[in-house]
Design a protein around this nucleic acid. Structure first.
Lengths: 242, 242
DNA sequence: CGAAGACTTGACTTGAGTCAAAATTAGTGG
DNA sequence: CCACTAATTTTGACTCAAGTCAAGTCTTCG
């Protein structure tokens, strides 16, 4: 009789068994033997808030799957003006496929843990498992949708709407178990500083701060210790997004 | 003796032989028999400037490969504010993969010709030819890079820089045979109205117009009949992009 | 506790928006 | 081909949302 494969006797690597994003990210489409092969070459790496994961124009040597925390992708103009061009949450994969170098900086916004894998290892797996390539195409298309949604916010919304939009984005993404349509009493720690938020929204820190104050005075949010946000009714916040 | 396969006796479909993007778009990775199969279900469709190719929230029933012309992708807020979230040139493929409905409007900016193919036909081909999926992933990643570059322009550049950036983008994309690094005396017809340009740049038509005038006065561009632009030295324009 | 960093608030400035009108261009039919 | 009309684009005068500069307050952390 064949042995049943469950969590206790399966050949799922030990490292992966306790992984929170095991079934959600790219690993979700791997067969146990592929997961085993991959896990031989991965290692968990921690980055404290502000630490750089990879830099613009630097060679891409490895990919990183986010375990927890928030990673900001930024671009900088020669004169120092900066724009955050994306936020990545677990279980997103960081690292540009098919390009020898990065097109932006990736920096830990909050404390972050990633599962790093060397470029050739993942690329070998992609060749052998078409589901993996499909998964990556799906992530790229989702990120493209998000980038385009954000272009509307950057190009056409007022400062007040931008800040509300940003808070709505965080409120609905920071908890990987958030259920769409849950509006009651959401509360979270902001993973970004006011400066990061300003760079994400194309504003200054002063304007961001003024709009936080306005949302607080209007009763849409409650702020404690600068970074802790309570949203009594998410619908109110959504309405403020324009 | 086996017959030589050249343009006169090969089994490349007649429709495809004269296709300008035959080797550049998704068709470039197809085998002759796949191309034949695909061509049985495709038809060339013309759209005059301003005509809608597909609408936001509408079901995706077919994909369209751009033969020539420029397609603008737009999103609109409830109150009518609009943002152009992307421009597509030959040989890009229009139509969101893996989604039953569109996430934006696609409209012909100039006169456009596309090669339309039913959704199931392309999806069947994707399953049988992994190179096609790779090609689509590459296009998605390229569009994502472009969207992120544009986010920097929208969020952090001045009106003057935005307009220069836009003209630089068009100057380097409108001619599919443009060679990177060619700076001499480029000239083209603008495929977008001032209103479209404003919606792309997150500005008003008045501001766009004023910045055109400024670039003309500064000798960076020459304008005739509103839409015809001469760029004596592309490097000057590039410098104006910030 | 004290210092450094993060955030807020106020006063003032400015770049881009708004509103209005004129000029240019494109489209139409005689 | 030209006159007439409609649409697009430019220009000017004025306004306002967001930026800048400058204190001041709160938080964090050694």
């Amino acid at each position: 009789m064949e042995k049943r494969l469950d969590i206790h006797n399966s050949n799922i690597p030990k490292l992966c068994r306790s992984c929170e994003v095991r079934h959600k990210g790219i690993c979700g489409v791997l067969k146990p033997e592929e997961l085993l092969e991959l896990s031989k070459h991965t290692r968990l790496v921690d980055y404290s808030a502000g630490k750089e994961l990879s830099a613009d124009s630097e060679a891409v040597l490895s990919y990183a799957s986010i375990m927890h925390g928030v990673v900001k992708l930024t671009k900088m103009l020669e004169d120092g003006r900066q724009q955050v061009v994306g936020l990545q949450f677990a279980p997103d994969l960081i690292g540009r496929m098919f390009s020898s170098e990065n097109h932006f900086n990736a920096e830990a916004a909050s404390n972050v843990q990633v599962c790093r894998m060397p470029k050739p290892v993942l690329e070998r797996l992609i060749k052998s498992n078409p589901k993996l390539e499909r998964k990556l195409l799906e992530q790229a298309l989702r990120e493209l949708d998000e980038a385009r949604d954000w272009m509307v916010t950057l190009g056409r919304k007022t400062a007040a709407e931008k800040v509300a939009c940003f808070l709505y984005l965080i409120a609905t993404h920071i908890d990987p178990n958030y259920i769409d349509g849950d509006f009651k009493n959401i509360s979270f720690e902001l993973p970004l500083t006011r400066a990061d938020i300003a760079d994400f929204l194309g504003l200054t820190i002063e304007t961001v701060s003024r709009q936080f104050t306005k949302l607080r005075v209007d009763g849409v949010i409650d702020i404690s210790a600068n970074r802790h946000i309570d949203v009594p009714d998410l619908r109110l916040l959504k309405k403020s997004c324009g």
